[in-house]
Simulated scan of single mutants.
Amino acid sequence: MTPRTEQPSGGSENSTPRHHQLIISLFGLYARAHGGELQVSTIISLMNDLGVESAGVRSSISRLKKRGVIDSVKVNNRKGYALSPSALSAFAEGDERIFTPRRATADSRWLLATFTVPESQRSIRHKIRSTLVRMGFGAVAPGLWIAPEHLKDEALSYFDRHGMADYFEFFLAEHVGSHDLAKNMGIWWDLESLDSLYSEFLETNRPLLEKWTGIPTAQESEDLDAEAFADYLVLITQWRRLPYSDPGLPAELLPEGWNAIAASDLFQQLHEIIGFRASRHAERAISAQESDARI
């Protein structure tokens, strides 16, 4: 199997995910059914299916531990790692965005967010702004941010859970007046960059769809499952940031030929075709490690 090498700096993050990003996807997809925990040997074994050597895996694990994404634990009396409580919450919130993303319509209401942070707490101000961008909010004006209404519960829950709710005021609003809302989409969000990301996703993964649609669903083998796992883990890692960059903006207000719809359709097709094979392979590897621990 062709190794997925670590992406050089300046390369395309979307087409070639970094090792630590793949490990995050691995935990998000398969560890939660096992208490959020995986043995180190299981992580190494599954990442080896992507051509990643153990040294690279251990280095990436160390990086994720320092970032507070995972914690050291014992798994069946063997060395392992578990998702941190904050990471578990983030994955739970992300499931809907990744697998069933919502898209507003031109008649939908908008969520407006404004915040005030004392000058003495600049670091919190920066954290709030970066979080709003990560969630998919657009900047209307200094101190005023906008997103589709369906982000309301997620946004309020996040800022409350992280102790930042007191800095905010949120409003639900309808667009009125004669201003061209479609034109403003390109001012509040970087639509050109977003469309480029979707275009890249399509270009990268259309051949993958051709490959797997040529393999009968009923055809089973452990080798096929391992190959599906490698392809699927990369696919998920490429896809999972896109529903955050694009929070589900109304298609009617976006440029003609907007690639988000086609990209979402492609992802869903591949998810249905290879997702179950990938899961079967991952569960087989996890079960094998659990059986070894009981011997």
Rank of each mutant, 00 (worst) to 15 (best):
T2S: 13
T2M: 14
T2E: 14
P3D: 05
E6N: 11
P8C: 05
S9H: 14
G10E: 06
S12I: 04
N14H: 14
N14L: 14
R18E: 12
I24C: 06
I24N: 06
G28P: 01
G28D: 00
A31T: 04
R32D: 00
G36S: 03
T42Q: 10
I43K: 06
S45R: 15
M47A: 00
N48L: 11
D49E: 12
L50G: 07
V52I: 13
V52A: 00
S54Y: 11
R58V: 13
S62L: 05
L64I: 01
K65V: 12
I70P: 04
D71E: 15
S72A: 15
V73C: 08
K74E: 14
N77Y: 12
Y81Q: 09
A82L: 06
L83K: 00
L88H: 13
A90T: 10
A92H: 10
G94V: 04
D95H: 12
R97M: 10
F99S: 02
A104C: 06
A104V: 03
T105L: 06
V117I: 10
V117Y: 08
Q121D: 10
H126C: 07
K127Q: 13
T131Y: 09
L132F: 04
G138N: 09
V140D: 07
A141T: 11
A141P: 06
I146C: 08
E149G: 10
E149V: 13
E149M: 13
D153S: 15
E154K: 14
L156W: 05
S157N: 08
S157P: 04
R161F: 09
Y167V: 05
F168I: 01
E169R: 15
F170E: 05
F170K: 02
L172T: 12
S178H: 14
S178W: 13
H179E: 13
A182Q: 08
K183V: 05
W188F: 15
L194H: 11
D195V: 07
D195R: 15
D195Q: 15
S196F: 11
S196P: 03
S199G: 08
L202R: 10
N205M: 03
R206L: 12
P207S: 07
P207Q: 08
P207F: 01
P207K: 08
L208P: 05
W212L: 00
P216C: 04
P216I: 05
T217G: 12
S221H: 08
S221C: 09
S221F: 05
E227P: 02
E227D: 15
D231W: 04
Y232W: 09
L233G: 06
L235W: 02
T237S: 09
R241C: 10
P243K: 07
S245P: 00
D246G: 01
D246E: 04
P247C: 00
G248A: 03
G248K: 01
P250I: 04
E252C: 00
D265N: 14
F267M: 01
F267V: 03
H271M: 01
A278L: 00
A278Y: 03
R280W: 02
A288V: 07
